[in-house]
Design a protein around this nucleic acid. Structure first.
Lengths: 259, 259
DNA sequence: CTCTACAACTGGTTTAAGCCAGTTGCTTGA
DNA sequence: TCAAGCAACTGGCTTAAACCAGTTGTAGAG
């Protein structure tokens, strides 16, 4: 492995630059192990901390990940999953029982698998309560936590909040709720989706999300807050989708109306 | 300032936890200066490097920013700008000469200011060339680089690529192109937008973007790749919007069609 | 009064050393 | 043969010290 020093700059940058160019040149392929911190330090004639700083820089860039006790490895090529809200109709909704966002996910996901973490009754977080118009007298909503896998890799964490109109209506709490899923049950109860809204932000993963999604530190996630409105314009469901952002993109299409 | 040590964990985490709870409790307000690294180390009985590591953790979380020679400061409250593609028609397009994304930005931005960095003729990057259907014989497109400010804060960097049909058509290169802007000129040339697409990903800011957007290290950006299609379904414009993600969200609404 | 120069701060980087904790493969003993 | 245990690796974290590079206020020169 050729690790010629680069001109100028700080020692830590020089090490990072040398390793980075090995990666971009393909001499270090995804999955390959880097020289150890101690070895890098020896080759560049620096202290171990300086080599360590170089690896921190590369980790921040998302090029490598460190594994305690094993070594530092070049990260796998980033594969993009794309999701969006094209081609959506009420009929699609009735037939699939899926919101546009979930539908697009189901379309493009070759080996989808859902793991239901929990279903329970909770007080929603502030941003969800706001979008659900949840009154203070009725603070409790139904919450379902899922993890979605694609090819056995965790790809997104979904938390769904549903307005809890009837506390006795325990059917919604069942994991398998029948044809059309939980949305079929909601339609039977008079909640037909007529329009929806997706709000998208990028942020850093929380500690727990990073663990669930098997993310290295310092990687952003895409959060989509999906709100479904019923025939009265009342929100009846809010879902929070958290994607690993290095693997997930979103596609939105819009027609230009002719008025 | 009360900086009681917290139980358990590593020294660097304990310092970070103590400072974080001061911030969330409001005892350290946005804009306030933290104790210096040396002072933190003294108070917690650790080496300066350990206090430094704690500040690195808080910086990664986006809670504080360090300024060389001045100190470490609590970051300002994060203000969200929301943009989206609601309520868009051809008439709006003709009247404003703005694509949906730009329009929503103009709507919600109280003190918008645009700084045109450059207008030139270039070979587009791979992802843009793909979306523009740019053939290898016609690799050159018109590129315009802008920086958008809101209340004098840099909020997004925009790079627009336009298919360069006529190399002699230098009017498009002018900063002020007349009523309807550059889109008005495009419509005169037979490019009327009929539909569009936004692709959204989250990623880390490049070094240059971080400088332009005045971002601390380790903060994600939202990138929107906006494609406009003309009456023949041919793409004629691709814009890359890069937002500072801690201040920018996106809102997309979709009606459920009745078929 | 103004401007310069400096002292005293701030964070930024590096060194060299030590210990801890996870991983891996080999040796050794049953 | 097999499994336990150990040695030798890996990264994770901390210490203590040094020097560099920006910032800021002030003392002193003009």
């Amino acid at each position: 492995m050729n690790l010629d020093p680069v001109e100028g700059q700080l020692p830590s940058r020089r090490i990072a630059d040398a390793v980075r160019s090995l990666i971009t040149a393909g001499e270090l392929a995804p999955g390959d192990k880097l020289p150890s911190e101690r070895e890098l330090a020896r080759r560049f004639g620096t202290a171990r901390n300086t080599a360590r700083e170089a690896i921190r820089l590369l980790t921040e860039e998302g090029l490598v990940t460190a594994q305690h006790g094993r070594g530092v490895f070049v990260r796998e090529k980033q594969r993009m999953f794309r999701w969006g809200n094209e081609r959506y109709s009420r009929r699609t909704y009735r037939e699939t029982g899926l919101t546009p966002f979930r539908l697009e996910m189901a379309r493009q996901n070759k080996n989808p698998r859902v793991e239901v973490t929990s279903i329970d009754q909770v007080t929603p977080p502030f941003d969800v309560a706001e979008r659900l118009n949840a009154s203070p007298e009725e603070p409790s909503v139904l919450r379902r936590c899922n993890t979605y896998y694609a090819d056995e890799e965790p790809i997104q964490v979904v938390t769904t909040y549903i307005r809890w109109a009837d506390a006795e209506d325990t059917l919604l709490l069942q994991p398998k709720t029948g044809p059309g899923g939980i949305y079929g049950r909601l339609e039977e109860r008079g909640h037909t989706m007529t329009t929806g809204q997706d709000e998208i932000i990028a942020r850093m993963a929380s500690h727990q999300e990073a663990q669930t999604l098997d993310l290295p530190p310092g990687v952003p996630v895409l959060e989509v807050l999906h709100t479904s409105l019923d025939q009265d314009g009342e929100p009846f469901e809010v879902s929070r989708f958290v994607h690993r952002a290095d693997r997930a993109g979103l596609v939105y299409t819009f027609p230009v109306e002719d008025r």
